[in-house]
Amino acid sequence: MSDSAIIPHDVEPHPLTGMYNGKFGLWLFLASEVMLFGALFSSYVLLRTGAPEGTWPRGEDILNWKLAMLNTMFLITSSVTMVMAWAELKMNRLGKAKQMLAITFALAGAFMVVKYFEYTDKFHHYQVELLAPMAHDGHDVMKITGHNVKETEDSVSIEPDAHGADKSAKHAPITIERSKIKRVTNFGPAHSTFLAVYFTLTGLHGLHIVGGMVVIGYLIFAADRIWKWNPEKMVNRVECTGLYWHFVDLVWIFLFPVLYLL
């Protein structure tokens, strides 16, 4: 493998910190991650408190909090299975540990699948902002949301969302002239600063989940080999990965209420 010198405290804890090198290094990395997500949360607070009254949408109006709650349960469970994997290794049960890692991986995958559906839903959902109120569905509105937008040079057609009691009924497509339209956009990051923050925060968090999945996947794949060569190192690697994973869970614990419920 690599030609490294023998490094002290690679597995043996240092008396001052009580940790081996990898664990200490990982905690420091997590400190920097706190600052990373902190900057994004801080930006969110600044942008939201600075937004004029009535312009900042509520998370629960635009986002699907039920799916997010499901995702929260996925992540919390994966945190438990992750720490269980470490515990099983400490009890010398490699097979069970691999199972726990596999369940963690699967739960993370489930999280990402739900996220995928959340994101694609947003990208396929459109909003047309009008220059003047237009009669629609019984009242005058400035904005019309819907799907299946078709844009031409002169006009935009949209299948409006159903409102009120009969949510399943679809309205027929309506066509609006460009001269009446201020802006057409999907519910992607460009839609509003709220959604920009939402996509950036959850996107960055999602990238961290994927990164964690790569590492966990590698650990499952290489478990037998590492365990045979140096069991203590395997335990330590799982512990360090676990620390990272719990942090990712911790970020979501704050993300979920802040974005979806407030």
């Binding site: 001052l16 910190t17 940790m19 905690w27 400190a31 992750m82 620390l243 869970d249 911790l250």
Partner: peptide
């Protein structure tokens, strides 16, 4: 999560100062 899953409760003082 931090205290129990991340074992913060059993760590030494040095880490707490950094955190």
């Amino acid at each position: 999560v931090a205290c129990y899953f991340m074992h913060l409760l059993t760590e030494k003082a040095m880490l707490f100062w950094i955190l």
